[in-house]
Design a protein around this nucleic acid. Structure first.
Lengths: 108, 108
DNA sequence: GTATATACATTGTATCACAAGGTATAGTAC
DNA sequence: GTACTATACCTTGTGATACAATGTATATAC
């Protein structure tokens, strides 16, 4: 990631779920999409993403299926109903957290 | 912390520096102040705070001095010029980070 | 006498992002 | 023909760090 990696902690799965809300994607493309949607601010490494995808699938927040395209095998991920619920919760949590930090930062 | 602790990572020293910008305080009181300013959202544990204070002092972002009050010894921390600079940078970083997350979350 | 609040501190654990490494295909440049 | 880049998957080991747990000590309230 471009940012101090510690800042990111706890937000990565939120970002991944958020990207997948827009439609099924495979790992490599998720990284590219995150880059695009954040205007190059988030450059997630593969060593970060793949373990997250596996963990989210294990938790049934994502489902995967293989698909071939021009000689390449891609593993697509699809967000489940449970995943959408989790996304909404995590989003809310992030917003509350962010608001609280701002409260402290801008305290007068 | 009240929040998923992972979300906090990377923000704790920002919060501490921010509280100390308002005036010198000792460890125990910093925790209380953080609570107050965040309206009870941030409940930093002592095991989190004290190592941070020591680290920040080592980095010369904080200076400390002992003061006695009603039989109790308190170690006051004072933010240095370097600390103020670091605070401004970290604040900006947090705001940019937060804006980027929101970009991804609210992408259409 | 014991519980609570105040005040400092350290140790060990769990989590997690990521660098580094590995495999493989396809296209392009030299 | 070979080197590089992009695409695509993956795992292992390391470092950072929040915090629970633990320890010390004083003062006050019940």
């Amino acid at each position: 990631m471009k940012y101090s990696k510690e800042l990111l902690k706890g937000s990565t799965s939120l970002l991944v779920l958020s990207v997948l809300k827009g439609g099924d994607l495979y790992g490599y493309k998720i990284i590219r999409e995150l880059e695009r949607r954040s205007q190059n601010e988030f450059q997630m490494s593969e060593g970060t993403l793949y373990p997250i995808l596996h963990a989210l699938e294990k938790e049934k927040l994502l489902e995967s299926y293989w698909q071939e395209f021009e000689g390449r095998n891609r593993k697509y991920y699809h967000i489940t109903k449970k995943g959408l619920k989790e996304l909404a919760e995590k989003k809310e949590e992030f917003e509350a957290f962010s608001a609280s930090v701002n409260k402290v930062l801008n305290y007068v």
